[in-house]
Amino acid sequence: MTRELLEISGLKTHFFTRGGVARAVDGLDLQVGRGQIVALVGESGSGKTVAGFSILGLVSAPGRITEGRILLNGQDLVGKSDAEMARIRGDRIAMIFQDPMMTLNPVLRIDDQMIETIRIHDRKVSKVEARRRALEALREVGIPAPEARLRNYPHELSGGMRQRVAIAIALLNKPDLIIADEPTTALDVTIQAQILYLIRKLCEEHGTGFIWITHDLGVAAEIANRIAVMYAGRIVEEGPTDAVLDRPHHPYTEGLIRSLPEGQPRGAALFQIPGMTPSLLNLPEGCPFRPRCHRASEACRAMPPERVSAETRFRCFHPANAAEGALHELS
């Protein structure tokens, strides 16, 4: 069996609040292979960001990982000390945030922050060598006139350029895995296209695994090899991009795709998923999507087990686009 770059199984990250236990991530299974881009999509509040933070070891009180394993190259990250995780972050795993200023220090020049990032992880690299690598990274992310840009402060760059610098910083130590949380939501279409192109190329060339958190299905369609759909702390459907978008099994995935204006006649009423996102403190029993689901039956009062079709895995008793015989319970 070939070992995946990242294998998450049964991950639970809960927040112990005064109002009760918020099960933000509640039994997450996810694999990412080398050079693979997995889009993590889903409702606001479904636990995407918390899942990313769990991998990075950045969950803080009142939250903690209560169960599960996160294997990176076969090594379990759950239970590692803060110091060990700090070493792994930025060395083996890097993060790109929606706001590049989460990564960039406003009072440091770009070259200073990049050189520092390199030398924190390897003191033996000389300043000259680190500067050369910083320049190379800026060139890779397509920054024009990188020598001049190295001497800039973050506020002297446009939003799109800052995000590319943040990406360059994420790449500096050639991590195995990058987690990006809505990295292009604030950018416009033409700049976003530049970044999508760049990341796809980098993953192919360096074999970097990538988790791209987004609620934009169009972006997921363009960049991802696989799509994982989250609802109320779990992955409810996961598979190759084409299979998930063209033949979704889970009614939530189906609803998401149907509610997009793309492909609809101009001005037609859009499909709406009825109801509201459930409160994590008060999830319905059984399938958490049941109160909003048009396919729900009595059976859905129990938690649906994970099932597999030829292409995807999903959690639903009454999947769409499926010949019942072709589906199997996953034992």
């Binding site: 279409v189 033409t190 976003q192 296209a193 999508l196 192109y197 796809r200 934009d216 299905l217 169009g218 972006v219 369609a221 363009e222 960049i223 090899n225 991009t241 084409d242 978008l245 795709i257 997009l260 793309e262 492909g263």
Partner: peptide, 10 residues
């Protein structure tokens, strides 16, 4: 360049 469900792996 508008992201679209139809543009896979562009």
């Amino acid at each position: 360049q508008n992201p679209s469900l139809k543009n896979r792996a562009r």
